[in-house]
Write a protein that binds this DNA or RNA. Structure first.
Lengths: 159, 159
DNA sequence: ATAAGTCTCTTGTCGAGACAACCTTTGCGT
DNA sequence: ACGCAAAGGTTGTCTCGACAAGAGACTTAT
């Protein structure tokens, strides 16, 4: 155990708590969305990002990037959403390799219907627990972490 | 979308970034441990908690609590660790319903061998990205969130 | 005693994501 | 033009975790 730089008690405590939050928070978000709307957090995220895009449309690659996801994962999720009528696929006219994902009217309605409850959960579990100053601090801290975690939105894996 | 309290731009930005970190950080930790030691982050966490306990032993329920996990999940993971010789199960003498999970010598060696690389990853991706002041802020913020996420503070005394 | 209820843990099933293999299209070098 | 590598997506397989159901063991009330 020696020979490695250890953590100070303060650092260790902060880390353990961050670890716990990172473990528990996704479960809470998933749980609310699953219970109220039969949606995964990630499924909601996909539709939310589409709803913010011009024409409610994005290429699969772009959608994968904004949702911090891989293409295979996204492809599966879009298939599910497509079978439920929330999203449509269409070949991209300018590049025949590419596929556009488009939010249907039903999908838009679903997002509109889902958003308030989701935001309320986010407020309840995160935002309302913090002072305005802490929200600012949180933003800065997460930004610092993302510079390493997600330098260019491109995650490469070495086998 | 109206009728619900929305988020201010500052709050929204902080949330989106927290969302990204919560999505990406577990993948990074898992990746390092999987690549270097063929361990899941959660498997490592289980063994680490055992290694910090007296006799390197904990009851399954207590272990589930300190790892923020459910009993079924833990049971499956312990089965895997047992088949790899890192953990042993034994019936609790005082309560025959209960099961004690015990870290074997091989398990202890595995933890000792794994810890430095894991800590280094934590430093690299989290601690070293932040000022001391930010570490303190992070600790306080996470503590605030855990009051809602984990009301029964699972860092209880060990039986 | 004993029956009901609770605690502790395990098992089986099912859905979701990681990873690899694959196919098609595009771009690039020569 | 042609051949090859890279980009864009999809599909199949396997593992892990969620959830529900179940089997023992302890507790309590009658």
């Amino acid at each position: 155990m020696d020979g490695a730089r250890w953590l100070t008690p303060e650092q260790l405590r902060a880390w353990i708590r961050l670890e716990a939050v990172v473990e528990l928070l996704p479960a809470v978000l998933d749980s609310q969305l699953q219970h109220d709307e039969q949606l995964t957090h990630f499924e909601y995220l996909v539709m939310a990002k589409l709803s913010e895009s011009p024409e409610h449309t994005l290429r699969m690659t772009a959608l994968a990037a904004t949702t911090n996801s891989t293409l295979p994962r996204l492809s599966h999720v879009v298939s599910r959403l497509e079978s439920r009528g929330f999203v449509e696929r269409s070949p991209c006219p300018t590049d025949r390799r590419a596929t556009n994902a488009h939010l249907t009217e039903a999908g838009w309605q679903k997002v509109v219907q889902t958003a308030p409850g989701h935001v309320e959960t986010v407020r309840d579990y995160v935002i309302d627990r913090l002072t305005d100053e802490q929200v600012t601090q949180l933003d800065e801290i997460m930004q610092a972490l993302l510079q390493k975690l997600d330098p260019e939105n491109t995650l490469r894996r070495l086998p």
